[in-house]
Structure formats: structure tokens, C-alpha cells
Amino acid sequence: MKPRDIELLSAYLDGQLSSSDSARLESRLKTEPELVSVMDDLRTARGYLRQLPKRRAPRNFTLTRKMVGQNPPLPRTYPVFRFTTAIATLLFFLTYGLNVLAPRFASQPVYGMGGGGGGDVELYSAEAPAMAEPAATEAPAEAPSVEMVPAPTMQAESTPAADTTREMETPVAKEGAEEAAGSALTQDQPQALPEPQPIPPLVPVLWQYILLGVAFLGAVLMAVMRRASARRWK
């Protein structure tokens, strides 16, 4: 039996042959018992398959929105809130990072040409003792000037009251001079260095609070929107 004949017989059983092919095959079936036998086999096999019980689906296969990854439709303003919240959060962390990191960079010593902007602050703070030092050294120089003021000569002919006044002023001036001299002596000791000025935050803290507030508020509003949409959807 040729495979082509089997195909013809199978198609003939299903009524899939053209009328001319059917007529030709029918005439052959009358004369070729082998063809009839094969056709019976094919018909029997087809009958078995058609006899198979049709099973009912064991359950419903309807889909849920979760199965297909559908989300409830959100309000049109939702993307605006999402964008605002994202930007506010980003800016908050950026400003926070700037304010935390800037003083650390500022305290780094300057190395070579690539010291960066932080070195300026170091230079500035390094200048502070240098500026304080002359002030301390000037004090003794000025202190005697208080004693050398021409006041005594001018007040030489003055009343005793004026003398007492001068005597009262002079010890004070002397004490000031001694203190200034003492402080000048202790300038070389490191514990006497003046405290460096705290560096103010690059971004005002108030801005950070505002950004944090916007981010928090946006997140809360988005959560409320999502929940309301899901409730409406159900």
C-alpha cells in the first residue's frame, strides 16, 4: 500500500477529497479489496477516538486580574504625584549627602595642585591663629602706650583727684598688658588654639524638611489613590 493511497483514503473518510478524486477512489475501491481493508482500519481508528469520553474541565479556568498582571486604572494626576515624590526624595538625599559630606571634604588637607575646593576652607581655618597671634603680640605693645600716654604730663598740674584717677587707671592698664603678654607666651602651646568656626550647611536645613515633607505627603497620597482605585475596581 502506497502512503499516497492511505492519505487519499483518510481524506476520503473525512470528506476532504474533491469530487473528481472521490469518484476515482470509489471506482478503485470496487476493484481493490486491500484498499477497502485499509479504509476500514482507518474508519475504526477514527471511531475509537470519537468514542473517547469528553471530559469536563475539572475547574473553571477563568483568569483573575492578578494572574494576568493587570493593575487598577489610576487617576490621571497619579503620575504628577509620582514624579514630584521621586524628585523630592532624590533632592532630599542629595542635599542631605551634601550637608554631611561637605565638612568632611573641607577638613581634608590640601595635597598638590589637585587639592580641590575643600582646601580653601583649611587654608581659611589655618589663618585663624595667624590672625590671632598679632593681636596678642600687639597687646603688650599697646599696653605700655597706655602708661606712656601723655596724660601724666598733661595732668601733672592737675588736681590730686586727677592723680588718683590716673593711679586707678594705671594698674588696670598694667594688668591688661600682663595678661596680653601671658597670652602671647602661651600661643605656642596647641591647646590654646582657638576653636575653628563650624561650617554652615550648604543647603539650609529648612529646605530639607520641606523636601522630606513633600516626599512623605506624596507617598501617602499615592497610597491613598492606589487603594481607592483598587476598591473602585473591585
Binding site: P3, I6, E7, S10, V38, D41, L42, A45, Y48
Partner: peptide, 16 residues
Amino acid sequence: IKSRLARARLRLRECL
């Protein structure tokens, strides 16, 4: 399709 169906039916008949 015609070829596969015919051959499948014949094989099934032999098996059954």
C-alpha cells in the same frame, strides 16, 4: 496534515 493524520490513524489501529 493529511499525511500525518492518515499515518496516525493507521498506527492507532495497529496499536488498538
